[in-house]
């Protein structure tokens, strides 16, 4: 059913820390690796070793340059995957019922055997979180690793989305946003987590944490060489300084 559920029991999702992400793409690779063998059809690629490779990925890292009014620009690595929106427009536009949002945990999924590959859901998503598989011609999107998080065959520490499990910087956190005491709710509270494009009215579940303020730049601008500092050196060091100077 592509009507949205009226009540959600739990609201599972991710917190992505833009302060700690180093842009290494490990989550992207592990996502592809897990999901190509997990839920649904493999994540296809066309021309993977050729001139124009294209493929479906559920998670991608963009890199932005942010320039404050009064300070030098800084770089922010920006991972982006489905935000499992509370008011998901991708679900309600779907004509077939393939797209749905689960009432038990709020995960937005595609039943690939029902998807006709019309692509309308990808048009409805403001975040570019849905990609048509170039081989299977069905819509692919982040499943929040629904086949890991409840999987009793995996060791306890692996029952978390592949991206979260693999991130070497600890920039991705998984949890239940409906519980105000959960790790993710607390992170959002403490660090001022925010929504992407709130004006689109999608009410995303996933939240982003802002980069921490940078140090003022005056204090670290002292890198120019100071040639005269050795002029009054005496003793052995003074002799060494002059001897090396003479060597050119």
């Amino acid at each position: 059913m592509t009507s949205l559920p009226t009540a959600i029991e739990r609201s599972l999702g991710l917190v992505i820390d833009l302060d700690t992400c180093v842009g290494c793409h490990a989550c992207v690779v592990n996502c592809k690796e897990w999901n190509t063998g997990g839920y649904g059809a493999p994540l296809g690629d066309l021309d993977p070793y050729g001139d124009e490779p294209v493929g479906s990925w559920l998670n991608r890292i963009h890199t932005f340059e942010v320039t404050p009014e009064d300070a030098p620009a800084s770089i922010v690595h920006f991972p982006k995957s489905c935000l499992h929106c509370s008011d998901a427009p991708c679900v309600t536009v779907c004509p077939t019922g393939a797209s749905y949002k689960r009432s038990e945990d709020g995960i937005v999924l595609v039943d690939e055997s029902m998807c006709i590959g019309c692509g309308l859901c990808a048009w409805a998503c403001p975040y570019g979180a849905r990609e048509m598989d170039p081989v299977e011609n069905v819509m692919k999107k982040c499943t929040l690793c629904v086949d890991r998080i409840y999987n009793d065959n995996l060791p306890e520490e692996d029952r978390t989305p592949a991206c979260v499990r693999t991130c070497p910087a600890g920039a991705r956190h998984f949890g239940d946003f409906s519980d105000p005491e959960s790790n993710v709710s607390k992170l959002v509270e403490d660090r001022g987590g925010f929504d992407l494009m709130p004006e689109m009215g999608t009410a995303p579940v996933n939240k982003y944490l802002p980069p921490r303020p940078k140090q003022a730049t005056e204090s670290c601008g002292a890198s120019e060489a100071k040639p005269d500092e050795t002029a009054n050196a005496t003793g052995f060091l003074g002799w060494l300084d002059r001897a090396l100077e003479r060597l050119g």
Partner: peptide, 21 residues
């Protein structure tokens, strides 16, 4: 990006060198 509070935002590197869907 939600980074407007810090400053002006410009794409520096896209996620991949080629096109995608």
């Amino acid at each position: 990006t939600g980074l407007g509070a810090i400053g002006r935002v410009r794409l520096l590197e896209s996620p991949h060198s080629g096109e995608n869907y």
